[in-house]
């Protein structure tokens, strides 16, 4: 009921303005100033310490776009992409298997997840690398036949080790996503005469994606960093190249910082990508799509100019 509130009349011809805005002295938060000062102090002390340490900072820009470093970046990205591809496809498959009514497939999926989540990925990488003790030859009949050590290259070891491990984690993420979709959706699709697979593909999975995408983005970022482990199975990627340069040039620590900087750049780019993917799958679920970063920046700029007029 707004009838009781006295409205100040606007100029003739315009609708009456609302009640007069409150102008009050805001509460002063002195504690905030103090804590901000302390935090800034510690921050700058750390920067000072690093800047004056025994580190040859100049080596980092020198090698930042070195050919080997760039090759390493490419290898890291490629390995991340392929392992995540195996992880996502395998994870979705495992999730569907776990949710299926067939006790055999659901048990196998359960066992797979139990095993690959329960052992460290580094151990798995070593096991793949050394599986030649179990399988001396790989024999796919007329298609392919070779000794295991020839077949299991560092690249394949890295790919299988990371991808199959990731599938176990993705399976749980996908399962959570599939379970989050209301059962009424499946019923409605079935009632329209849609088959199981079509219902899954057209109705359930697109809605599950909204739940699956945010943790998957997390997994991609994790995977990008985990690829640094594959140096242990003789695969050359960003960290391994950086370390190599470090030992030959004597700038060991500097090259580690360089690698860290590259990892930060790559994960930051991935976070931006994740934001847009999430935005895509949010369509229909929220009444209004969240703004893109650019839209946010523009909104802030315009709100700065009008902030003076807003009180209370």
């Amino acid at each position: 009921m707004t009838a009781d509130i006295k409205k100040t009349d606007g100029p003739a011809g315009t609708p009456p303005a609302g009640p007069e805005a409150i102008k009050a002295v805001p509460v002063r938060h002195y504690g905030r100033y103090v804590s901000a000062l302390i935090a800034l102090g510690i921050f700058f002390a750390l920067i000072w310490a690093f800047a004056n340490g025994d580190i040859n900072w100049g080596a980092i820009p020198d090698y930042f776009f070195n050919d080997r470093i760039l090759t390493g970046v490419r290898e890291t990205l490629w390995l991340t992409f392929l392992s995540m591809l195996i992880g996502i496809v395998g994870g979705l498959l495992l999730a569907v298997m776990r949710l299926s009514k067939n006790p055999v497939t659901s048990s196998i999926a359960w066992f797979y997840i139990w095993f690959f989540r329960g052992t460290p990925v580094l151990v798995q990488l070593f096991v793949w690398f050394n599986l030649g003790f179990v399988f001396e030859y790989i024999n796919l009949g007329p298609v392919y036949k070779d000794e295991w050590s020839q077949f299991m290259t560092p690249f394949l070891t890295a790919l299988l080790g990371l991808g199959l491990n990731e599938a176990a984690y993705m399976a749980e993420i996908c399962r959570a996503g599939l379970l989050a979709v209301d059962e009424g959706q499946t019923e409605a699709a079935h009632a329209l005469g849609m088959s199981h697979s079509k219902t899954l593909r057209r109705i359930v999975v697109p809605q599950a994606m909204r739940v699956i995408v945010p943790p998957t983005g997390n997994e991609v970022i994790n995977m990008l960093k985990t690829t640094s482990l594959v140096a242990a199975v003789q695969y050359y990627e960003l960290l391994r190249y950086a370390q190599d340069i470090g030992t030959t040039s004597g700038a060991t620590v500097e090259m580690l910082f360089l690698a860290a900087a590259w990892y930060l750049i790559l994960t930051s780019l991935l976070s931006v990508g994740q934001y847009y993917v999430e935005r895509y799958y949010a369509r229909g679920s929220s009444r209004q799509l969240p703004p893109t970063p650019w839209q946010k920046v523009r909104a802030h700029l315009t709100s700065f100019s009008s902030r003076k007029g807003v009180t209370a």
């Binding site: 959706q185 019923e187 409605a188 009632a191 005469g193 809605q207 369509r283």
Partner: peptide, 18 residues
Amino acid sequence: LKRRDIGMVFQRFNLFPH
């Protein structure tokens, strides 16, 4: 195949939100 010929309307609508 048989469900094609039978339409169903649910209490909670169950429209596809995406």
